[in-house]
Amino acid sequence: MSTTGRGTPAQSSTADREIVISRVINAPREVVFEAFSEVRHLSQWWGPEGFTTTTRAFEFRVGGVWDFVMHGPDGTDYAEWITWTEITPPERIVLLHGESREDPNAFESVLTFTPDGPATRIEMRTVFPTAALRDEAITQHGAVEGGRQTLGNLAAYIVEVVRQAEN
C-alpha cells in the first residue's frame, strides 16, 4: 500500500486482483536471489509443503522459460510454466506463471529482495488477470497459505545452505 500526498492510503489499481506475501529470510539478498535463479536450488524448495518439483527445461534469462511439474503429496501432477520478463540481480524478478505458454489465465509475479539488516525481506506480489481468478486461487487452491509455505520452504532451505557453506 502507498499513501497519497494527503496521508490517505492509496489503493493500487490492481489491489482486487493481487496476493502479496512477504517474509524475512536470515541470509544476504544475493543468497536469496540465487535460490530463485538456479534450478539446482529451486528444485529443492519450490512449492508448498509436501510438494516436489521436476524440471523439464530451465533458462534463467529474460525471455527464458522454466517448464516443470509440481508433484502434490496426493500424487497429482501439475504442469507449470514460467517465463522471466524482468531480471535485476539481486533486487527484482518479474515472471509470468501459468500451466503452459498459451495459458490465458497466467498471472504475473513480482519478486523483490530488500536488505533487512543482515537478512533479506522477500515480497511476492502476484497479480491475476481478474479478481475472480485471484479469488479462485485463494479459495480453491489455497494460494495464500501455499505461498506462505513456499517461502517457509525457501527459508528452511537457505538456512541449510548457509550452514553447509560455513562448515
Rank of each mutant, 00 (worst) to 15 (best):
N26Q: 14
P90I: 04
F58P: 05
R40K: 14
G72Q: 05
S43M: 02
T8S: 07
S12K: 01
I19E: 03
V39A: 15
G64T: 07
Y78P: 01
D74V: 08
I21C: 04
E38I: 00
R17S: 05
P89M: 07
Q11H: 05
Q44A: 15
V69R: 08
M70C: 07
F58M: 02
T83Q: 14
E38M: 05
E49R: 09
A79M: 01
T54H: 07
A10Q: 14
V20I: 15
S100P: 02
R56L: 13
E38D: 15
E86G: 00
S12Q: 02
P90Q: 03
T83Y: 06
T88Q: 10
I87E: 03
I19M: 13
N26A: 15
T55D: 07
P9W: 00
R17T: 08
V32D: 02
V24W: 08
E80F: 01
E91N: 11
V31I: 15
V24R: 14
S12N: 12
I93A: 09
E59D: 15
E86A: 14
P48L: 10
R23K: 15
A15P: 00
T88W: 00
R23T: 07
A27D: 10
E102W: 01
A57F: 01
P104V: 08
V110M: 00
V20A: 05
D103M: 08
G50D: 05
S37R: 10
V62P: 05
T54P: 01
P118S: 14
G98I: 11
S22F: 02
F33R: 10
G72T: 12
N26G: 11
S22N: 13
D67M: 06
D16S: 14
G63P: 06
M70D: 06
S37G: 12
V110Y: 02
D74L: 09
F60I: 04
I82Q: 08
W81A: 04
D77N: 12
E38G: 02
V39T: 11
A57N: 09
Q44F: 03
H71F: 00
V110L: 03
D103T: 10
R56S: 12
F60T: 05
H97R: 01
E34N: 13
T120H: 11
R56C: 00
W45S: 09
P28R: 13
V62K: 06
D77M: 03
H41V: 03
I122T: 14
S109C: 11
R29C: 08
V24N: 11
V69N: 08
A35Y: 06
S37A: 15
I82S: 11
A119C: 10
I93L: 13
R23S: 11
S37N: 10
R61T: 12
T112E: 06
V32N: 05
E18Q: 15
F107D: 03
G50T: 04
P9V: 13
W45D: 08
E18S: 10
R17D: 03
I25G: 11
N105V: 00
R101V: 07
T55P: 02
T53R: 00
H71G: 00
T53F: 00
T54M: 03
F58D: 07
S100L: 05
F68M: 13
S109N: 11
I21Q: 03
L95G: 08
F68C: 09
T76I: 07
W46C: 04
T114K: 13
E99T: 12
H41F: 00
L95Y: 01
R61Q: 13
E99K: 08
F113M: 09
S109T: 15
A106Y: 04
N105K: 10
E34V: 00
I19P: 04
R125F: 07
R125P: 03
